[in-house]
């Protein structure tokens, strides 16, 4: 690079670099398109869009609050179920299981992560929903019905079903990354704990403590996946525009309302409102994923990459 002379090396490098730079173009186009499409809705409703609860295509009043609520509650519930189970099984795989078992199980778990979400959707719809409707929800209503959480009717379809299936979908993410992070913690930590007289269980506790940032990253990454999950939730949550304390009631999420109504949306304002929901969802997942990736990267020293996480 002594002068501005064009060399074969320079051209080659620039071509590949150009391909790499296309990533920025793609992300910029996504931002630009969603922002442009949402323009009309932003102009019409302003910030009130995020706090409005009406969704009335006839009188053209749109508010996203029930969908934001549905997305947050379904994802939070899914985490509540998936996090303890995921970390527990990661600890089993990394600390207790024989190496061969650990490798085999994580191979299977990674394959399962490749199952399309529509498949989880039809399983929830045809298998889980009848079971919830027939057995679980009536029991919940009878015994815990005094809590607002379990009031209502056993539909089978609703927040509970969506959250359970979401938790099944995000568990592989938590398990495989947490396992990786645990394996990356130095073995001397456990040896030191054991030498000081800790029980094997306490030694695992020490390893988990050391792996905490990475595991937190795994959880946030799973949260990102749950927030944006579309097809399974669309089939299972019931797609009703309401905010209800009961987990048995149907609801809707940001992703599910877009999937359900986009092709039916007829007026420009209707379409624009749906695109604004996509824009909000996009912004939320960018923030969540950015934080998660920074944590995972830091905790594993950059060994773990997105290719394995996606």
């Amino acid at each position: 690079m002594k002068s501005a002379r064009i060399t074969a090396d320079g051209v080659y490098r620039a071509t590949l670099g150009g391909a790499a730079a296309l990533v920025f173009v793609v992300v910029a186009l996504i931002v630009f398109e969603t922002a442009r499409g949402a323009g009309l809705s932003i102009k019409t409703f302003g910030l009130g869009f995020l706090t409005g609860t009406a969704w009335d295509p006839v009188s053209e009043k749109f508010g996203a609050l029930p969908y934001v609520y549905g997305t947050i509650v379904s994802s939070a519930l899914a985490l509540l179920i998936a996090v303890p189970l995921g970390i527990g099984s990661a600890a089993y795989l990394a600390e207790i299981a024989p190496r061969r078992v650990g490798a085999l199980v994580s191979f299977v778990i990674e394959l399962l992560a490749a199952i399309p979400s529509i498949v989880y959707g039809i399983w929830g719809f045809f298998v889980l929903a009848p079971w919830l409707r027939g057995a679980v929800e009536p029991w919940l209503i009878a015994h815990l019905g005094f809590l607002p959480l379990f009031r209502g009717y056993p539909f089978g379809i609703g927040m509970l079903n969506a959250a359970i299936v979401l938790s099944i979908m995000i568990v592989p993410t938590i398990v495989s990354i947490s396992r990786e992070v645990l394996l990356a913690t130095p073995g001397s930590l456990r040896e030191a704990a054991l030498a000081l007289g800790a029980t094997p269980a306490e030694a695992i506790g020490v390893a988990l403590g050391a792996a905490r940032p990475g595991i937190l990253g795994a959880v946030i990454l799973a949260l990102g996946r749950a927030l944006g999950e579309t097809m399974a939730v669309t089939m299972l949550i019931g797609n009703t525009n309401r905010i209800s304390a009961s987990l048995l009631d149907p609801g809707a999420t940001m992703a599910s309302i877009i999937a359900n109504e986009f092709t039916e949306a007829t007026t420009p304002l209707y379409i624009s409102s749906l695109i604004e929901i996509a824009l909000v969802l996009f912004a939320i997942t960018i923030v969540v994923n950015g934080a998660a990736r920074a944590l995972v990267y830091w905790a594993t020293g950059g060994r773990r990459t997105a290719a394995a996480l996606a």
Partner: peptide, 28 residues
Amino acid sequence: RFASLVRYTADLLGGVPSIVVGVAAYGL
């Protein structure tokens, strides 16, 4: 620095919900 930025952006793109990608492709 350019390469790190590409890596980070690619990772972020990997986390964009597929429904949002659909909305963008609709507009594009």
